[in-house]
Amino acid sequence: MKHIVMFLILSFSTLILISCQSQTKEMTLLDNVSGISISKSNGYGGLNENYFASYSQEESISDFEEILKNAKGNTQDVTNETPTYDILVRYENGDTHGLHLILGNEGEESVFMYIGYEESYTVSPEDTYKLENIIVEEEAY
C-alpha cells in the first residue's frame, strides 16, 4: 500500500512538472498600443532614443501588435547576438515598454526581448518578413 501511494505521488508530481514546462510564454501588452518608435540599437541595457521611425496610425500599430502577440517564449540564450533595433511601445494608459529586436534574415525567425530582461520571444519567419517590410523601408528614408 505504501508503494502504491508513493508511486501515485511521484506520478502526479511528474505530470505537474511536465505540464508546466510545456506552456509557451507569450509577450504581454499592458494596454492598447498608442504608438511605436524604432531606432538602431546601441546594444543591450538601454534604449536608443534617436528614433528613425514613429508610428501612431492604427493600421501600422495593429500590425506590430499582432506580431508581438504571436511571439512565443524562447529558452535559448540570445545575448551573444547584438540587437538590431530598439523599439519603444507606448500605451494609451501612459505606460511604455522598451524592446530589443534581433531581426532575422529572410526566411529566418526574429527575436524580441524586453529591455533589462534576458527572456526572449521568437517571431516566425512570416512575421520577420512583415517586420522587415515595416522597419527597413522606413529606415531607408
Rank of each mutant, 00 (worst) to 15 (best):
residue 43 G to H: 02
residue 113 M to R: 15
residue 25 K to M: 12
residue 7 F to V: 13
residue 121 Y to V: 03
residue 75 T to Y: 15
residue 33 V to Q: 01
residue 94 G to V: 03
residue 112 F to C: 04
residue 130 K to F: 00
residue 34 S to F: 06
residue 13 S to W: 01
residue 84 T to I: 04
residue 114 Y to S: 06
residue 11 S to Y: 00
residue 51 Y to I: 02
residue 82 T to V: 10
residue 74 N to D: 00
residue 78 V to K: 11
residue 101 L to V: 04
residue 91 Y to G: 08
residue 137 E to F: 13
residue 30 L to F: 08
residue 7 F to G: 13
residue 76 Q to R: 12
residue 14 T to G: 15
residue 104 G to K: 02
residue 128 T to Y: 02
residue 101 L to E: 03
residue 116 G to Q: 04
residue 26 E to W: 09
residue 134 I to W: 05
residue 38 I to F: 02
residue 66 E to N: 14
residue 39 S to Q: 04
residue 16 I to L: 14
residue 47 L to D: 02
residue 99 L to W: 04
residue 17 L to C: 09
residue 52 F to R: 04
residue 31 D to W: 01
residue 39 S to G: 04
residue 14 T to H: 10
residue 46 G to D: 13
residue 98 G to I: 04
residue 48 N to F: 03
residue 10 L to D: 00
residue 140 A to R: 12
residue 14 T to F: 13
residue 64 F to P: 07
residue 97 H to T: 09
residue 14 T to K: 05
residue 111 V to L: 03
residue 66 E to K: 15
residue 96 T to R: 11
residue 135 I to M: 03
residue 13 S to D: 00
residue 78 V to A: 07
residue 125 P to Q: 05
residue 134 I to E: 06
residue 8 L to W: 09
residue 76 Q to C: 09
residue 78 V to N: 14
residue 86 D to N: 11
residue 10 L to Q: 00
residue 13 S to C: 12
residue 85 Y to P: 04
residue 114 Y to G: 09
residue 72 K to E: 11
residue 133 N to M: 13
residue 23 Q to I: 14
residue 3 H to Q: 14
residue 121 Y to G: 05
residue 116 G to W: 05
residue 38 I to T: 04
residue 98 G to P: 06
residue 100 H to V: 05
residue 65 E to F: 02
residue 118 E to C: 01
residue 91 Y to V: 07
residue 15 L to S: 14
residue 69 K to R: 13
residue 116 G to A: 03
residue 115 I to Q: 05
residue 135 I to T: 02
residue 104 G to W: 07
residue 137 E to L: 12
residue 109 E to H: 12
residue 102 I to F: 13
residue 95 D to H: 13
residue 39 S to H: 06
residue 10 L to S: 07
residue 34 S to G: 03
residue 64 F to A: 01
residue 100 H to A: 06
residue 19 S to E: 09
residue 5 V to K: 15
residue 80 N to V: 14
residue 7 F to L: 15
residue 89 V to H: 01
residue 127 D to F: 01
residue 113 M to L: 14
residue 20 C to Y: 13
residue 38 I to W: 03
residue 40 K to N: 14
residue 71 A to L: 03
residue 37 S to W: 06
residue 24 T to A: 12
residue 113 M to T: 09
residue 67 I to D: 03
residue 109 E to R: 14
residue 119 E to G: 12
residue 98 G to Y: 07
residue 23 Q to K: 15
residue 11 S to P: 00
residue 48 N to D: 03
